[in-house]
Write a protein that binds this DNA or RNA. Sequence first.
DNA 1: GAAGATTGAAACCTCAATCTTT
DNA 2: AAAGATTGAGGTTTCAATCTTC
Lengths: 301, 301
Amino acid sequence: MIKEIRQYSRQMVRELDLLKGVFRDSGCSYSQCHALFEIEQKGILNLMELSKLLLLDKSTTSRTVKGLVEQGYVKMEKIAQDQRQKLYSLTEEGQQIVKMNNESANAQVTQAIELLDEQERLRVEEGLKFYARALERSRLQSAYLIRPICQEDNQRVGRVIREVMTEYGAVGEGYSIEDPEVDQMYETYNNSRAAFFVICKDEEILGCGGIGPLAGGEATTCELKKMYFLPELRGIGFGKRLVFLCLEEARRIGYQECYLETVERMWQANLLYKKMGFQLLPEPKGCTGHSGCDSWYVKKL
Amino acid sequence: MIKEIRQYSRQMVRELDLLKGVFRDSGCSYSQCHALFEIEQKGILNLMELSKLLLLDKSTTSRTVKGLVEQGYVKMEKIAQDQRQKLYSLTEEGQQIVKMNNESANAQVTQAIELLDEQERLRVEEGLKFYARALERSRLQSAYLIRPICQEDNQRVGRVIREVMTEYGAVGEGYSIEDPEVDQMYETYNNSRAAFFVICKDEEILGCGGIGPLAGGEATTCELKKMYFLPELRGIGFGKRLVFLCLEEARRIGYQECYLETVERMWQANLLYKKMGFQLLPEPKGCTGHSGCDSWYVKKL
DNA sequence: GAAGATTGAAACCTCAATCTTT
DNA sequence: AAAGATTGAGGTTTCAATCTTC
């Protein structure tokens, strides 16, 4: 399947590349047209932001915009707060060009899309969306690594747990932030019925989570425990990966169901658990001593 | 929807562009890696073919391959039949590089695709396939034009009809190639119950087709007639467009069903009719006098 | 020192002109 | 003349170095 996807994506990129010819009429290079488009989208932006959007080196971007300013399509202004930045926005004429270019590009795409039926169009939209998103997540994730916890991580893991729980106001009695294990995660989970992972960038630890036996529960039930991500790590798909990894490990150990408890205000986490097939429970299981929690989930393994 | 599709495709292209960085390790430029890949796919090819596959100017391609030959990844040979061409193929070392590059590219794509579930992966594959195909067809179609027939077309349309019918052996008694109208399509279809279109590139006519009343049939039934495409025009989606146009015209005139007859060995046409919702009939309708036909279809309008 | 922007050198690409073979 | 390939001039892009402001 990878082979097919690569093949189709090569074909698609090739065709899209040919479409770029449309912009020749406007008297600007393709990169200049792209720059005009992105400036129009954002309204106003500086060189670095534009450079990232265009996927061009800042030096190229600088020269590209220089041409546009000379042609009178883009105007530059400075702000008092930061004399380093140059902020670019479109002139009247620039807006005209963007509008024209957009119309011809839309016409081209429309012409192609009209060859498909309604069902196929939806497939195209969804397919492109999923693939773009997957590639982005994969790129963002590639800077980080998931690995089992080791003893040297204890201190930094403790810090992550405290920071995230504090962020969500899960502090004080009835919350796991008070558990003595917080500073000794390695020792606590280093046994045949448990597993604990950390997510790090270089030496820095940014997230963690693991499984262990559910205190006061059946022997076949495990608990998904201490899953906390610093903000930097959120929204790039690591939650799904870590939960998946934990559930796999739980199955390997021999557990038959996985329980977890959390607070409703950690909405990203709650959404993730539901997506991963966890069922909301009306009341807690076992006796974890975490009376501050207000949401309980379980999933068969 | 066009807006969404353009947005996602921009995002996707941007991400794919970032993936190109993988090839840096091999010591070749991205274009060189791409060239190695395409040479490996085809086995052996000349400069012009390679240039088309890479979407690069032949001059760039020449320089790109020159570098690869110097590095010992590609070998050049000439053939006796045509001393103009240079044929390129991979050396052992070149194959090694391609294999390495392919593995790392596959790994990258795999990493992204693994973030999706089975359903989403299928959507990606289908979506990319549909879009690549639609863009290609749209590009190929843009060289041609569909328009109503005019009197000056008569001779050239007659030639197209005879050429295609002869190609499929639909010659002699019982075939419409004998109809006197073949040389006077404009006059025959220039009335309020009929319509006839031609597909042309510049002045050259490459295909035709139209509708008219079904001889010996009910007044509410029309016949799809004389639809013939020269080989150049096949496989780029014009059949669908022309049939669609004819059916629209038939509805406008007030017909309630559309009949057509053809021969089974024109398999592309038969496939098209089925796809467009025509039902195969066990026997002919009306009395067209075309006893050579062996397939009859009808579609409600 | 770090962030935003520009500049110089070199690589890459296109267009047009040219060379060689058919 | 046409098709395949190469070469020269000039635009586009990157990398690294530099300038300016915070």
